[in-house]
Computed example of a mutant assay.
Amino acid sequence: MDLGDRLKGAGKRLTPQRRLVLEAVERLGHATPDEVLAQARAAQPSLSLSTVYRNLEVLEELGLVRHAHLSDRAPTYHSVGGHEHFHLVCRTCGAVISVGPDLLAPLLQRLDADHGFVPDVGHLTVFGTCRDCR
């Protein structure tokens, strides 16, 4: 199902702004709303930050983007078109490392078995110190 059909199925339209926001997220990889705005404004200079936030919310509701908190500032958005992953963030240099959920498999199984709990891995961020900064 393409983007237009997916939006229509959810009662939404594929607006030029929505397409620009999604394309910006996909191009940037991991981006804050401000970074998405800067990228999208190259194509549409009149785009506002509130429009970016509204469209990120819609795109997240549709499962096209996800957000994670990689700092104490604004959330960071990324496309779900790639692989499911969680994030390691170095507190020293700010490096962000994407890690596949298979690394967490034993923990996820244990959380389910012991607590009946299934975590949302895409929102998981682990802060620490990277190899280079140690």
Rank of each mutant, 00 (worst) to 15 (best):
M1T: 14
L3K: 14
G4A: 15
D5W: 12
D5V: 09
R6T: 12
L7H: 11
K12L: 14
R13I: 03
R13Q: 07
L14M: 09
L14D: 05
T15V: 10
P16G: 07
P16D: 07
Q17E: 11
R18Y: 02
L20V: 14
A24K: 11
R27S: 15
L28R: 13
T32C: 11
D34Q: 14
E35T: 08
E35P: 05
E35H: 04
A38K: 15
A42G: 07
A42S: 06
P45M: 05
L47R: 01
L49A: 04
L49M: 06
S50Y: 03
T51F: 01
Y53W: 06
L56E: 00
V58C: 03
V58E: 10
L59D: 10
G63L: 12
G63R: 13
G63M: 07
L64R: 13
R66V: 04
A68P: 04
H69S: 08
H69M: 09
L70T: 14
S71A: 13
Y77H: 13
H78D: 13
H78L: 15
S79C: 02
G82C: 05
G82Y: 05
G82L: 14
C90T: 00
C90L: 03
R91Y: 02
R91F: 10
C93F: 11
V96P: 03
V99C: 03
G100M: 00
P101A: 01
P101N: 05
D102E: 11
D102G: 03
L103Y: 01
L104K: 00
A105E: 04
A105V: 06
L107V: 08
D114Q: 13
D114E: 15
D114I: 01
D120H: 13
D120L: 07
H123S: 15
H123G: 15
T125P: 12
T125H: 12
T125M: 09
F127D: 07
F127I: 05
T129E: 14
C130A: 10
D132C: 10
C133H: 10
R134T: 04
